[in-house]
């Protein structure tokens, strides 16, 4: 599934979408950047409440398919700019991580 297909299916908001054709492979949930660096896998979606600029650096290094900011948290503006420059997809949703993860599981993501 691509990020674009995910956005449409789960009604996610695209805050920065420089590469929506990217393929998704699994997901990781976490707010501690060291853990995300060490544990998340290439092409994972990353569900978090962190919306600052360094999130983009982590997403880029791990080669995540997209960041999903949950519970209606907001990205900082410089994070959005950096994401557009670096080709990192930033999405958001009102849902909680658990609820979103459950619906991903039901769709075999």
């Amino acid at each position: 599934m691509t990020v674009k297909e995910l956005v449409d299916q789960f009604d996610l908001e695209v805050v920065a979408g420089p590469d929506l054709k990217k393929e998704i492979d699994g997901a990781y949930i976490g707010d501690l950047l060291s853990n995300v660096m060490a544990r998340a896998e290439k092409d994972n979606l990353w569900l978090t409440v962190q919306g600052h600029q360094n999130v983009v650096a982590v997403a880029l290094l791990v080669e995540l398919s997209a960041v999903i900011l949950v519970e209606n948290f907001d990205y900082e503006e410089n994070a959005v700019q950096r994401a557009c420059q670096k080709g990192v997809n930033l999405l958001k949703t009102k849902k909680k991580s658990y609820d979103l993860a459950c619906s991903f599981c039901e769709s075999n993501i």
Binding site: S34, N35, M37
Partner: peptide, 14 residues
Amino acid sequence: MGFGAGMGLVNVKR
């Protein structure tokens, strides 16, 4: 911001 979990150098060593 999600830093300072005390895992930095631990991860490096690993």
